[in-house]
Design a protein around this nucleic acid. Structure first.
Lengths: 338, 338
DNA sequence: TCGCAGTCCGTAAACGTTTACGAGATTAGT
DNA sequence: ACTAATCTCGTAAACGTTTACGGACTGCGA
């Protein structure tokens, strides 16, 4: 069964009628429609997406671009699963499907974007793993595909983005630690050119300055955004010159290894070292319980999807007032660690 | 910039030449080629995938179908990231791209497959989250798209699949526990119609029978494949009638919650209850360290991709002897928990 | 009998590429 | 100077759909 042509020949009707029958158009005899569906089922015929989307000028697909690679596990955790869940509930309302565009960490994201995503592969695109300077914004802008980014870039020219409110997290975390009497506060950020690292560090420094404190450059620790990275980070932390008494961690996964690293050195989070991090499903199973910030990720997915659809002519009217840019709140959860 | 037509008009050459220039065909003047690339870059032109793949009869895309949803986090962890990594290294050799087909857990996987994947959306497909009876095998077989499954189905009609060797895991885990003197051994399997749950339970029962032991139906615990599921599982475990002294867990994430549940009840893994599980990046950060089975996931991805390509005429000659079906070994890692 | 509306279906164009084929121009060989 | 080879490019068909348009019926009322 090659295509609609063969199906039509077999039924001895025209391809136009077959197409109309399959697509639920009104002007087709119900008996004919039944026969068409029956034959389609029998031969396992499904419409060729290429032909269809070529003609319709739309694919019904939204792409979510994300990074893969053996060193990228932290963000690959449940974070995206939750966001996907929210995105999909919105897309389902419009019969749109979500696919994840998997860009290897060894490849240039911009080149990848140009290659696979190409015009009309997806009707809209959600970006993630935003870099400090990210060429993808320019590329997408040129091609005219509707898009939105999960995470800001540095060169913000009014493109749509949603991002977790790491500024708010930095402010309250620092505020809290200072109120607890801490003076030498360290922070951990993911290594690499990820934009949120810069955002977070800058804001922590500013927040400390509010209290007349400084952020010692030696107390800014970079690590891989996963458990092992956190473990090594703990070792560096312990070996730091003027010993910090508190740590604020950006990544969800690093905190696991960090806990373990402290334990092995006989240090207990919350007693010997204050630790504040980002929520993950793991957080509630740590002992002592992690003081952390938790964004409502599923709702974030919903909001992002709605904001994206708002920029697409075909769906815009359903979302008249979706904000183009938004800092997504992180809810504070008091634990025992800091 | 709508398409190759406009680009050609602007350059005052034919679309054929533009296409040839862009695709690196030899019979085009190098000066012309340069002008074409320049203009394409300037206008942000990228070829329309629909038109291209319609003509070529191939998309250059391999789809990896996976399940999403707020209750599916265990498998969504680093498991897939590692497999992706392996798959991508193979695909990159042939300039193929990997996309993840995200099927919401609220939707019928077979319907999803028919709808979005449709013929010629992807040149090949990798299935996951295989059900006990899985209609997708039949669908894919009918349409003729090359595919392979990560996980067996019950109705094995010779379709290609790779699966983790849970039989081997069951055998050695039971063997070990029995040798340690355990007689009342419990197992944990994911709830739902996931096939590996059946496989695992059956094999554990058989392995116990080898030693004249039985698997008490009350000692087969079903749980969500995530941390919370493991926590509740611990509570059920503790409340079980004839108290088991050992537990073999299938899912990577449940073990986290299970540990926590035991701890809260004053029980220590390895001392009060023997625990054997599956490796995850988290496992090495548990205390006491988890005795577990670790598959080489990246290599599994490589093998699966090669096996898939072996079934595709265009790439088959490169992989003459890739096995169609394979039980992937799980390496035993001795810890302190059992 | 005619006209009109309604139902059902066939025809053909269009979507944006790639590529086989052949034509024209230039160069090389004799 | 003639032929053959080489280089470069234009032409047009093909890929599999969807859909605007119109034609062929049927039924019905005037």
């Amino acid at each position: 069964m090659k295509g609609i042509r063969q199906l039509a020949d077999h039924l001895d009707i025209s391809i136009g009628t077959v197409s109309r029958a399959l697509n639920g158009k009104p002007d087709v005899n119900e008996e004919t429609r039944r026969r068409v569906f029956e034959a389609a089922e029998k031969f396992g015929y499904v419409a060729n997406q290429a032909g269809r989307s070529l003609r319709k000028g739309a694919t019904g697909i939204i792409g979510f671009m994300m990074q893969t690679g053996h060193d990228i596990t932290g963000q690959g955790d449940t974070f995206f699963m939750s966001v996907f869940d929210g995105v999909q509930t919105v897309l389902a309302r419009h019969k749109l499907d979500l696919v994840a565009l998997l860009c290897s960490s060894e490849e240039d994201p911009d080149a990848y974007l140009k290659r696979v995503v190409a015009r009309s592969f997806a009707d809209g695109i959600i970006l993630s793993a935003t870099r400090y300077r990210d060429g993808r914004f320019g590329t997408l802008h040129k091609t005219g595909i509707p898009f939105i980014s999960l995470g800001r870039s540095q060169n913000d020219a009014g493109q749509p983005w949603y991002d977790l409110d790491f500024e708010g997290m930095a402010d309250t975390a620092i505020e809290r630690l200072v109120a607890q009497g801490h003076r030498r506060i360290a922070i951990g950020r993911p290594e690499g050119d990820i934009n949120l690292g810069y955002v977070f560090e800058d804001r922590c420094r500013a927040a400390l300055a509010q209290h007349g404190l400084t952020l010692d450059p030696a107390h800014v620790f970079r690590s891989r955004p996963n458990e092992s990275g956190g473990y090594r980070l703990a070792q560096n932390f312990i070996a730091a010159p003027t010993k910090p008494t508190a740590m604020v961690l950006l990544n969800e996964a690093t905190v696991i290894g960090f806990y373990r690293g402290l334990e092995e050195a006989g240090l207990m989070p919350g007693r010997d070292v204050a630790v504040i991090g980002q929520y993950s499903p793991m957080a509630q199973f740590l002992s002592p319980r992690l003081t952390c910030f938790r964004p409502a990720l599923r709702d974030l997915g919903v909001a992002v999807a709605e904001s994206l659809l708002a920029t697409m002519p075909a769906f815009a009217e359903a979302y008249p007032e979706a904000p183009r840019q938004c800092l997504w709140p992180m809810n504070f959860i008091e634990g025992e660690s800091g």
